[in-house]
């Protein structure tokens, strides 16, 4: 169960080797004993993540998970719930891809769509079923400001995140009366393995900052949060710019 101050007993990470997912686990593990279920492809990075969380005193289970094998997502969720209710589930997987390849090469574009949107829909449906069964549970959906207004430089990624964002926002509405809550997280540029080698955009955040924002938002009952918070106003402004102006911006 999640307690009155927002601390979970079980944290379920889908895309469990993402820097943000692991930062969230570390943030919760600081306060109380925690059971963590890591769903990710079986890689040395996952083994390393399991060890690092165990070192913090967490009870860790690892599950094999492939974002594109959508027909297996329900089984992964069920397996994660075997050891206890899923108090907080974090949908953290996604790929950035090569933006130019993504809009010129069919397999590359489709891969982005499958990993960033189709997979999360399957995951969300499975999590929704589990939450209805449990009568409680929080889903933390890691969206992106890139989905708020697509821009020339990475619009395929942006389009997948736009769909992702809309789906999880709607899932939150659907689960409201059934005990569930969905927190949609919209970070800007996050310095992580996913963005390694890219030039940080303005208002860049670290995975730990995103994690802290998630912990605070879960505790306060918020349903959406931008990281950093100022991005909410910035994006609101950008959304309303005329297209000729928007396309000239150096972003």
């Amino acid at each position: 169960m999640i307690d009155s101050l927002g601390a979970p007993q079980t944290l379920f990470l889908l895309g469990g080797t993402s820097d943000i997912a692991l930062a969230i686990a570390r943030a919760y593990a600081r306060h109380a004993p925690l059971r963590v279920v890591l769903a990710a492809r079986h890689t040395s990075r996952r083994d390393e993540a399991v060890r690092s969380l165990q070192a913090l005193g967490c009870a860790v289970e690892a599950l094999d998970f492939d974002a594109r094998a959508t027909q297996t997502h329900a089984d992964v969720v069920t397996a994660a719930a075997n050891g206890g209710d899923l108090d907080i589930s974090v949908v953290a997987y996604g790929v950035l891809g090569d933006p130019e390849q993504a809009w010129t090469d069919v397999p590359s574009g489709v891969e982005l769509a499958e990993v960033n949107y189709v997979g999360p829909v399957a995951t969300g449906i499975a999590l929704g079923a589990q939450i209805r069964e449990q009568g409680h549970g929080v889903v933390v959906a890691l969206s992106s400001v890139a989905g708020e207004r697509p821009r020339r430089s990475n619009f395929v990624y942006g389009s997948t995140k736009a769909g992702f964002d809309a789906f999880y926002t709607g899932l939150g509405e659907a689960l409201r009366g059934l005990g569930g809550r969905v927190l949609v997280v919209r970070p800007g540029f996050v310095r992580s393995k996913m963005t390694d080698g890219l030039r940080p955009a303005p208002l860049a955040a670290t995975p730990d900052q995103v994690a802290q924002a998630v912990v605070d938002a879960v505790a306060s009952g918020a349903e959406q949060v931008w990281v950093p918070r100022t991005l909410r106003a910035v994006m609101s402004g950008l959304r309303h710019l005329p297209r000729p102006v928007f396309r000239r911006l150096p972003i």
């Binding site: 169960m1 307690d3 009155s4 009568g135 409680h136 059934l178 005990g179």
Partner: peptide, 8 residues
């Protein structure tokens, strides 16, 4: 205390 509601 109106904290941590759940559905039943």
């Amino acid at each position: 205390g109106r904290t941590a509601p759940s559905t039943a």
